[in-house]
Structure formats: structure tokens, C-alpha cells
Design a protein around this nucleic acid. Sequence first.
RNA 1: GGAGGCUUCGCCUAGUCUGGUCUAUGGCGCGGGAUUGCUAAUCCCGUUGGGGGCCUGUCCCCCUCGAGGGUUCAAAUCCCUCAGCCUCCGCCA
Length: 447
Amino acid sequence: MLRVRGLGSSVRRGAGVWTGPAVSLRRMIDPRLLTDEPETTAAALARRGVDADALVRLRDLDTARRGAIAALDAARAEQKAASKAIGQRPPEEREAAIAEAAVLKERVATLEAARDAAEAAHRDAFARIPNLPHPDAPDGDEGDGVVVRTVGERPALDGEPHDHVALLEGADALDLARGAKVSGSRFAYLKGEGALLELALVRYAVDVAQAHGHVPVVPPVLVREPAMYGTGFLPTDEQQLFATRDDELYLVGTSEVPLAGMHMDEVLDPSELPLRYAGISPCFRREAGAHGKDTRGIFRVHQFEKVELFSLVAPDDGDAEHERILATQLAILEGLGLHARVVDIPVGDLGASAARKFDVEAWIPSQGAYREVTSCSDTTDYQARRLRIRMRVDGGDNTLVHTLNGTALAVQRTIIALVEQHQRADGSVAVPDALVPHLGREVLFAR
RNA sequence: GGAGGCUUCGCCUAGUCUGGUCUAUGGCGCGGGAUUGCUAAUCCCGUUGGGGGCCUGUCCCCCUCGAGGGUUCAAAUCCCUCAGCCUCCGCCA
């Protein structure tokens, strides 16, 4: 049970450029779990394919690491005492004392190297361990997801549905050819009603997010390495990132990165939690390895606009916040009159940082399939550990917060679902009521 | 892009020139206590964060003065690199 104290906010400043050991920030679970709860930890990680022997080796590395630290600390204490004594002696006695202390210096250097080696070995081993899965997340691998909920009705369309490319290009709201000419494949122009639709969707999603307690934020979309490492996109997903050539900056693939990074190296006061943000930003993804997938239209593009929900909460509030984020996402889709289903993602298909994830898949009439339009993840303390985002605890040790993220609205994919589900026989699209005030019209692409 | 100044444990601040007595000064704020008594005052104690140890204690040790590295028996203090903030100039939306 956490007791809270009502202090003002405290923000550690002056972190400066991040030059620390990059690898130590990679995927990390709490090392103490291995000594305090070895059995439950092993059982939980076994679900994700981590074998028990690896955990035993990990625990041994931790023991070795702590031993090396203790040995170094003891030697350093001795050396410090010797140095201090020199300053208090008369000058004529100093020469001999300095010679003695010089030996201690050597020993400290040796033990320091041993400590560094032990920590590196420990760190590298821990880097391969994914987050503990949530007990309620289903077993299995990709494809074993469990449909837990459905919203809206599958639309009854007359005849063969047009796909989004036909609908949008037919109304001169999308220009793929010129996108490719100027920037290459997977780039597009939204123009006319297409551009207005983006603005309306963003504004609508921000309004709903705000009503659910999320503060709108326009974040930086170029970030430095620490934010990428801290959120887990580096080094694992490096091939997915666009980077700038001369400035050591990365373009974000989601505003989750700058939103999570915002509180890096801070100790938050419990009274300011939960912190809820709605990031509004373009997102940039290289889509390496997706050659040939979703090549038609704007389902999978290198640049898209997204409103992202992000929450920082006290550890005990993670489950409730996950539900809350999902509810907000569904409210946004329902307001748009869209039919979609929620899939509880199996542990074998989770990213390293997620303990549990729900994908929300909208019905795409032209494909006769449900396709992912949003998702939300509970990353428990995994990102917080790497970003060092903590919460003050009265009468105890400060503790890591939990972070959660979910898509409020990904513009391009939502446009696809919206124009396809609400299309009419003549190629026009009925605008859902909730969007009318933001769009200023009831019908799109009218002939 | 150019020139200069700055960065100390919540906030402000002393210390840096001249390395050791810095176990970092003082004020504010905050927490606890005492006393006097009454819209309050005074005094005392505590108050950065991280890590390690065992004799698990009002305990001990290590690291932390923007970050990283170096010199030295010894670094807040000397040297190098980087970051951030401020002022002025240039450029720009």
C-alpha cells in the first residue's frame, strides 16, 4: 500500500546530454524478481519462451556483479581514508605516505575494471529478457488473438464496395502518383476534402481524448537517442526509423516517444498522477521488411498523422488505466459510426516492452477483413525503468511509475475505414454526426 | 552561424582564482518536536538522488556539485570534450 504526500512537483533538472551506457537502458525487468520471486518469475517468462536455465545464469551474474561492487567500494573507502590522512600530516611526512597511497590507487583501478566487466555481463544478459506478461494475456503466437469485444454494426453495402483509393482519388482527395513522384512509394498527398478530413479527424479525436482527461500535446518529432532507447525502439527497431544525417536525431514513429521521454529522469509526486496526454504528431516509419505488403493506397505509408494517448500512473492503477484507454479508443470509433473488434494479443506476439496489448481492428469492406486501426499497450514499469521515471513514496523507496499508450486515432487508416464503411452507391460518403461540426459538411465527395 | 556569461543536494545561494580542515555554507520552503500563549512568534532536529553490505541498525560503505573523460596520493576547485540556459550580433517563420 502506497501512502502519498502532498508536496509540490519536483523535477530533476540539468540531465544534460545523455551520454550514459546505452545498452543498460535496453529491455529490462526488475533484477530483484530473480532472487525474491524466482518461481513465479520463471513461470511468467516461460510463457514467452524464456527458459529457466537462462534465469539461473542471470541470477548468478547478478550475484557476481554485487560482489564486485562490494569489493570495489571497500577498496575505495580505504584509499579515500589514506588520501585524507595525507592532508592532515606535516609536509615532511607526506612523501612516504603518498608512495603508500599510490599502491591503493592501483588496486582501485583493477577492481574498477572487474566491476565494469561484471556489470556489462549482467546488463547484456538482462537486455534479452522481455517484460513479464500480464496474467490475463492469452497464450499463443501471432494469429492466436482472442476477440474480446465488437463495436458497431457491419455496414450493409449495395453491390461491390469501392476501395478507399477509388473513393478518394475519384473525388480528387488523394494523389498517390504525385506522392511517389516527389517522395517515393508509400507517400501520398491528401488534398481538398481529403486534407480537410484529416484536420477534422484530428480535432475530433483530440476533443474526445480531452473529455477523457488527456491533455493535448504537440511534441517534438525529432528526438535524440536516449528517448528512442528509453521507449524501446532502439536498438531493436533501428531499421524502422528514419534518422537525420548530420544531427544525430531520429524522426519519431509515434509520439509515444517524446511523450514518454518528457518525464525522463524525473521523480513525480503521487498527487500529480495520473498524467494523461494526447500527442498530436506526424509519424515516420521506414516499413523495412514490409516490401509488397499493403502496397495499394494509404494503409501502410511512411508518413501519417496520429493522435496518441499516453498515461503515466501509480503501479497499482495500470490495469484500470489500460481499460480506460481502450474505452476512450472505442468511444472515438463509435462516434465515427465504425464497426470494429478488439483483439487481446497473445503473449507470443507481444513486443518486448508490453505486458499486454489490445489491437482494435476495423472492418474494411473492400478487403472483407478486419485490419488494425489502433492498439493499446500496458508496458508496466518496463519503459519507466529505462527512462528512470519514478514516483515519490512516503516512508519508503521511490518507485517506478507504470506507462501505457494507445492510439486515439491514426488518420490514414481511419480515413480508409470511414470512407469505405460509410460509402454510398454513387461514391459519396456520409459523414458521421460527431464529425459534422469539425468538417462543416454532412456529405463528402458529393457529385 | 559568431562573441561573451552561466550551470552547486526542492528554490535561491557561499565555496572554484590559491586542490586536502567540503563530512558542501547560509536563507526560503517542507516534515517532526519543544516552549510561550492566541489571527502569531521563537528555538531545536531532519530534509538530493542512486547503489552495495551485514552484526537489519537512531547502522556502515561507495557514487552523485550539468554530463562524460583526464591529471593527482587527493578534484565542486586544475585540464579536455559535450549539453543546456541567458545576453548581444547575424539569419529566419
